[in-house]
Computed example of a mutant assay.
Amino acid sequence: MDPGNYTGISEFLLLGLSEELELQPIIFGLFLFMYLITVFGNLLIILTVNSDSHLHTPMYFFLSNLSFSDICFTSTTIPKMLWNIQTQSKVITYEGCLSQMYFFTLFVGLDNFLLTVMAYDHFVAICHPLNYTIIMNSWLCGLLVLVSWFLSVLHSTLQTSMVLRLSFCRVLKIPHFFCELKQMIQLACSDTFLNNMAMYFAVMLLAVVPFAGIIYSYCKIISSIYGISSAQGKYKAFSTCASHLSVVFLFYCTSLGVYLSSAANHGSHSSVVASVMYTVAMPMLNTFIYSLRNKDIKEALVRFSGREGLKGPIVLGMKNCAESPRT
């Protein structure tokens, strides 16, 4: 180990998107606006889905869980970034950095699994409509979400535990606006071979494999849509999947693009800016995609906004999960 190594680390420095002082108010305002839109937009979707009996279906049960995950996803990084800009500080504690990395990794994985589960739901609804209520029952819906949580927690715990074994150099500047896993590994002065192998293996196993499952599901879905004789039936089936396909495209094109190109872009500013797309922009855009492109959500929002108040507690759950999905 080099003499410059240091194991009793107490804090890191987050360099953020830019170190130019005149840009800080602009960055603060932009990210605060995007964060508020993300939180309130996804919270509105959750409240609407849980308060409207027409949306108590598997499709919208998974959507409400995805919205909850997106709120947590952005809340792990943006508040700390805004606080650092406001206080003109770049410091984050070692414990805070590990916690941020843990929860960020967890909710990225959860988003990934939920998108895969939603693709499977569309596949069953379109390719096996007669057996949909039997296959997508309440027990299976709950199990799919629980398994998604379990795998995400397991993966995040494993990656964070492997970072704990690393020793870091004295110069602990992270060229990012949050503590990302690959950035933490790059800062280490000890051997990171196992960490890098675990990270890239996880990307292949937990991202590429689910993405392949999504592609397979939509190949079957497209084949089934072509078999529908009426134009109205084709449009109805396609509109069911359009919002989900848009979100999948955004998620994988941005997140996988950043990670798979990291070998050529270590520490580059372009990689940090690209990360904004899937850490901030994507969760915000999800609210617009699912609200503006979904007839049921728009109708439910109108009914929801017309109420004086909601009766009973609002919980993120599922009721009558076996009902057929509406488009």
Rank of each mutant, 00 (worst) to 15 (best):
Q232T: 05
L301E: 06
L23W: 13
M1C: 05
E20F: 12
G16P: 01
T74R: 10
I214F: 07
A207S: 10
M277V: 03
C241K: 01
L21Y: 10
S255T: 09
T57Y: 01
F12Y: 12
L250G: 13
C321I: 06
R170S: 07
C169N: 07
V276M: 13
S230K: 01
F193I: 05
V49P: 02
N65A: 09
Q100I: 01
L43M: 10
A300H: 04
N294H: 11
K295C: 15
T327R: 05
T76P: 04
T76R: 04
K295V: 12
S152M: 10
T87M: 14
G29N: 15
L98G: 04
S261T: 07
C179W: 00
A231S: 11
F193C: 03
Y102A: 00
F107V: 13
P210I: 09
M184A: 08
A125F: 07
Y6L: 14
L144F: 02
I214W: 06
M101N: 14
T57M: 04
L310C: 12
A188P: 14
S89Q: 12
C321G: 15
S243Q: 08
F12D: 02
S64K: 12
M81L: 15
F113K: 07
Y218F: 13
I221C: 04
V276H: 08
T38D: 07
S67C: 14
S64P: 10
M162G: 02
G8D: 13
F123R: 07
D111P: 00
L82I: 02
Q88N: 15
I46D: 00
T157V: 13
E95P: 00
L23H: 12
Y290Q: 08
F62R: 11
A212D: 05
R293Y: 04
A125R: 00
I134M: 02
C141A: 02
M1R: 05
K173T: 04
V315G: 01
S167V: 03
N65S: 00
L13E: 05
F107C: 06
I26C: 00
I135T: 07
V203L: 15
S255H: 09
F104M: 14
A119S: 15
L110C: 04
I45L: 02
I134C: 13
A242F: 05
S246I: 14
S190F: 10
M136P: 02
V39R: 07
T192A: 05
I215P: 06
N131P: 00
I214T: 04
K90D: 14
L285N: 07
G257Y: 09
E299W: 11
C241L: 00
S239P: 05
R303Y: 10
Y35N: 00
T116E: 04
S148N: 05
S18D: 14
G4I: 11
V39F: 03
D70R: 13
N137F: 00
N137C: 09
Q183S: 10
I85Y: 15
F201D: 01
F168M: 04
S67M: 12
T116H: 00
T74M: 02
A231L: 13
V145S: 10
